[in-house]
Each structure stands twice: as C-alpha cells, then as structure tokens.
Design a binder for these strands. Structure first.
Lengths: 357, 357
DNA sequence: TTGTAGGCGTTATCAT
DNA sequence: ATGATAACGCCTACAA
C-alpha cells in the first residue's frame, strides 16, 4: 500500500533482472530459460518467456560479449560499398556466416586509409570474433597488428601480406591470360591493357597479359591512366593502336565502349573489349561486355572458413588464389566482317604497337 | 624471486587494469588519462599512454557501452547492398555521422523479411544509439516495436508508417511527373510506366505518371512485370504500344534498351526511355540513360539529423519528402528524325494505348 | 592529482 | 530445479 513506486524507476530497457522479477525467479534461472538451456521446469520456462515477452526484453549483447569474451560477430570492412565486386564477396561471407550461426556486421571506409583504420578500430573494439577486410588499401603494419589480435583475412591481392593474416584472392594473372587467349583465338594481335589503378591486382593482370602474349611471340602495351579521367582514354583510343583492349574493371570497359563509339570505332569489329569482375553492368551494356569473372561467392565463403580455422588453432598463414573464368559476350565476339577502321588496312600484323608499362 | 607468475596469466587482450598496473596508477586514473580528460598530471599521462601503447591496449567498447548506456554507434540496415541507390544513401549517412563523431555500422538482410528482422535484432542488441533502415520491406509491427525502443528512421516510402518512427523519402510522384513532362515536351504521347515492383514507391511513381498525363488529357498505361523476367518485357515492347516508357529503376531501363535493340526499336527515335535513381549505370549505357535522380546524399544526412533530434526529445514523427531531379540524357533526347517504326504511321495520336494498373 | 568502491547486464560456478 | 555470488572491463561519484 505505502509502496512508493510499484514499478521500479526503469532506467531504460528491461533487463534480465526485470524479467526474473516479473516471473518471480532468480536471474540465473531466467538466463538459462531465455537461452533455451535444459534444467528449467516447464512452468518456470513459461512464466519467464511470458514475462520477457510482455516487457519487450532484448538481451544486451554488450553485457553478454563482455562476460563471454566472444561476440558471435564477424566484422567486414569495405573500402567501396558501391563496388559490386566487393558486395558480391560480402554476399558469400553472409551466406557462410549464416550457416554457421554468426552475425555479420559491415563497416565502410571509403575515403582514406585513416578512415579504414578507424573502422578497423571500431570492429576490434566491438570484439568481433574475426575480421574480413575486402580492400587492398590497408597498410602492412596495420594488418599485422590487427592480425595478431584477432583472426583476420584480407580478400584482395596484397604485395607482401604479413604472416599474421590470411589472404584470399583470385588468380589475376590467369584471368588476364584467359582473356588474352580468347582475343588471340579470334585473330586479335594488337592487344593492350588499360587500367586506372596502381594496385597489386592491376599489376598482376598486366603481367598475365604479357605472359600470354609472350607465349605467341608478340608484345602488348600497358597503360596506366589517371583515375576519373576520360580525356586520356579518348586520346589513347584515338591513336587506334590496338584492335583489342583488356580493362581492369567493367566500369572502365564501359567508358571504353562509349568513347570508342564517339570516335567511330566499332566494338567489337574494330576493337574487342574485355572487362574484369563481371559485374551486372557487363550484361547491361551494348554491346554486352565480355568480362573475367571471379568466384566472389566462394571467396567470401572461404574467408569465413579461414576465420574458423584460425579460431581452431591454425597458425600458418593461408594464401589462396581462386581461378577466374572468362565470360565471353558480344564485345569480344569473333568478327566475321572485315574491320571498318579508317586506318590503313594493316588489320592483323603479327607485331604490336604501344609501350609504357 | 619466488613469484609464481610475474606476468599475470593474461586471458586475452590487455585491459585498462593491465595498463594501470604497468603505469603504476589506479584504473580510474588510467581511464581518465586514456580518454584525454583533464585532471591528470603530465607525468602520469605520459606513463599511462606509454603503457597502453606497449601493451597494445584497445578499449573494450562492449564494456564501455555497458556502463555508459550508449554506444556511439548508428546502425544501418539494408536489404540490397548491391543496389547503388541504397549505397549512395549510406554514403550520406556516413558523411553526416562522421561530422558528428558517430560510428556507422551496417547490416544486410538481403533474402527475406525474417533476415532483415534478425539484423535489426542484432543492432538493437548492440545497443546502437539509432537505427536507419534503408528498405521498405520491414513490417509495420516490427518498425513500431523497434521505434519505441530506439530512434529509428526509415529511408524509403512506406504506405502507413507507424507513429514511432521517422520516414524520409523522395517525392516519387513529382519525379515521375517531371519525367513525363519532359517526354510530353519532346512530343511523346503514348507513354507507359513499367515496373517489376509492387512497392509503395513504385505505385507512387505510377500515380505521378497518371497525374502528368491527366493534366494534358491523355491516358498512359502501367504494367507490373514479374521480377527477373525478360520474356514479358519483350512481349510488351513487341506490341509497340508506346513511344516512351518510364521505368522504376535504371536496371529495368537497361533491360528495356537491350530488348528494344533486339527488336529493332531504336532508342530514342522510336522509343524514349527514362530510368529512375540515376545510378552509375545510367551514364554507362548506350545510349546514355535519362533518369530521375534522388538526392541520396541529402536523404542520408537528414536521416542522421532526425536521429539526433529524437535523441534530443522530439516525439512527433518526421515525414519528409525530398524533391527529385530529372537528368536528361540521350535516351529521351528530342528526336529530329522521323520515327522509323514499322507500325503504320500513327506517330503521335492524341490518345493512348494499354491498360492494366 | 590520485585512489576506492560500486555498478552496468550477463553468464558461469557452486551451493542448496 | 533453483538461487547466491563472483566475474567480465569500464566509468563515475566520492574520498583522500
């Protein structure tokens, strides 16, 4: 009767103590029941669940992870959430994590290395059980540090990954080789590689191109263009140096197709084009774009497996490379008609143009 | 000498107690110093920072958020991480959050409503200070529940949003109207709307089309196609019912352009095409795609502001609609040449075809 | 300036 | 089957 406050001054959300009180049991019993553990009478279990329901109880995972020492969380760091190659990897991560009962949270540091590092700090602070970094931008030292703290796998090609982390990538040299071989098989000889990236990945693809061309005794040309510049691309294509180009990604390939069209260069008749990553863009373009596909789903899944292996004690670093697949579409289809180049008809010279690595 | 273990059996990571011990101060002092609070001597501060550094100390944010009751985290839920419209909103969220010193974490529930709900549970369990849901799939009841627990804003159009949450969307009717008005201005009259979605958003765009057409006294047609089916689209276009189509997104617009090309329908001469969302795809297509742009950055930023307002005590729901902008590109450019339709030359009849809402 | 003593919500250990 | 009780790592009065 003289009770001051029947309902205790609820600070915020209902806690397990509130639930226990409402169900008139101890918090230990409530904890067990709520987790579905055995050793709780049906009657108690019912009352506890009822109380939890009516109070809108939600477990506080901060408290839980504090006492357990694990969070059940896998953290994923991206540097380009708008890149469909990266998000496809995330899909694989999520699929595998779901099957293993882990939750996936993502963080995105798109603008700078320091931002990426800050996202990593957040994840580590959150005590994620493992970290998957879909980016090649994170410095060696940062990776080494975090790798010593928690299981970490980088899904990207790294020049010199620290021992403390695992890496998963696709075989970029093989991917580029496959592309070039298809171009050679359809009679192309003046083959170039154009990229807007200075990454290890891009460099590896350039090497793959060289390997394939060297094998048949001709030289290719490689061109590194500034990011986000279309003028250089136009100038390059206007020289009509090649009859086929491999690009470092589908977006750049789309730019090539558009610029070529503006210049009156017909794709694929005058110029075959092959992109990389086989994003949805490739199938949407006109002509549809041939592209080197990476098994992103598999790579994502494997990353989660690698995390689990580390948790189970593996200490040797994993270095895994998945084989890519060339998807041939219209942009590199065999040409039946003669090239309509405005250049002199040196259509298929056994030697090639260009320079500059 | 006879000490059993000089270094205490370190369970895992260094804690603030370890740091304090190494710096020979109390843990409270270490806490203050580490947070950069005043009232710590320079000498102590130095020793503490040094100790933290050498021990590789990282604050445990689970413990921190447990005691503080807030996490400093903003949670973002997406149902389509591969959708560049959604990720553009995320970019806005991140920009605003960064300026306000909050961290953003994302979760992605791409496959089902239950998965989305599970991601929401995770976020609430993590005690995020606010939740931004970039999806229209979450059921009313779920939104209401979570909205009562933490500040929540949905960035999407909802038919009947619960009072407990804020909503931010763009004015889809106005967007569709703007598109139709441009089509009308360039002489199109048989204008259709084609969508693969049954969402409130899609319906609103359909209404916008009707409004604009009604104003000039003609009727349009609306067609809801099954998701992921191209056959129906082909059949629809093959009927050559219209000389202009508005699509619910750029991806569908890309499909239209490709199918039209297959059917020998020239874009924009025979058929003007306008997409929605103005994703990177729009500029990459050939012809480049006109598209209705939404101010995604702004919408994302506004969502974070709304969260802050709620935290500062606002209780009335926010319902905000941002004006979209039509970006005109080649696919709806005015045609100088006569249409090359194979149909009888009823090029610009004042009445229109089609049916079926 | 520094230290002591709770307590945040949860789980786990050990009794009962 | 159930309940006390002690951590987990951190922050915050309050005391010294």
């Amino acid at each position: 009767m003289a009770e001051p406050t029947p309902t205790p001054v609820r600070r915020g959300r209902a806690t397990i103590v509130d639930v226990a009180a409402a169900a008139r049991v101890s918090k230990s019993l409530a904890s067990r029941a709520l987790r579905g553990e055995p050793g709780v009478s049906e009657e108690s279990r019912r009352r506890i669940n009822e109380a939890a329901e009516s109070l809108g109880y939600r477990i506080n995972s901060a408290a839980r992870s504090l006492v357990l020492g694990v969070s059940g969380l896998i953290g994923v760091i991206l540097n380009d959430i708008g890149n469909q190659h990266h998000t496809a990897i995330v899909a694989g991560v999520e699929a595998e994590a779901r099957e293993r009962g882990a939750e996936v949270i993502l963080a995105h540091g798109g603008h700078s290395v320091s931002e990426l590092q800050s996202r990593i700090d957040t994840m580590v602070g959150l005590r994620v059980d493992g970290l998957i970094i879909v980016s090649s931008w994170v410095p060696h030292a940062t990776l080494d540090t975090v790798g010593r703290e928690i299981p970490t796998v980088v899904v990207a090609r790294l020049d010199d990954p620290p021992e403390s982390i695992d890496t998963i990538a696709s075989d970029d040299e093989a991917g580029a080789r496959a592309a070039v071989e298809q171009l050679l098989a359809t009679g192309r000889r003046r083959i170039g590689y154009v990229t807007r990236s200075a990454s290890a990945t891009s460099a590896a693809r350039g090497r793959g191109l060289d390997q394939a061309l060297t094998q048949v005794g001709i030289r290719g040309s490689q061109h590194v263009l500034p990011r986000d510049d279309t003028g250089d691309l136009r100038a390059l294509l206007a020289r009509r140096e090649f009859d086929a180009v491999l690009l470092n990604n589908d977006q750049t390939a789309a730019d090539v197709i558009r610029v070529a069209r503006d210049l009156g260069i017909s794709v694929p008749t005058d110029l075959a084009v092959i992109g990389y990553d086989d994003t949805p863009l490739a199938a949407a373009l006109i002509p549809t774009l041939s592209s080197v596909d990476q098994p992103q789903q598999l790579m994502g899944r494997r990353a989660v497996q690698a995390l689990a292996e580390r948790q189970n004690g593996r200490t040797e670093p994993l270095r895994e490379f998945f084989p890519p697949t060339l998807v041939v579409r219209d942009s590199s289809a065999p040409t039946t008609a003669e090239p309509t180049t405005t250049e002199p008809p040196t259509a298929k010279p056994p030697s090639a143009g260009g320079a500059q690595a």
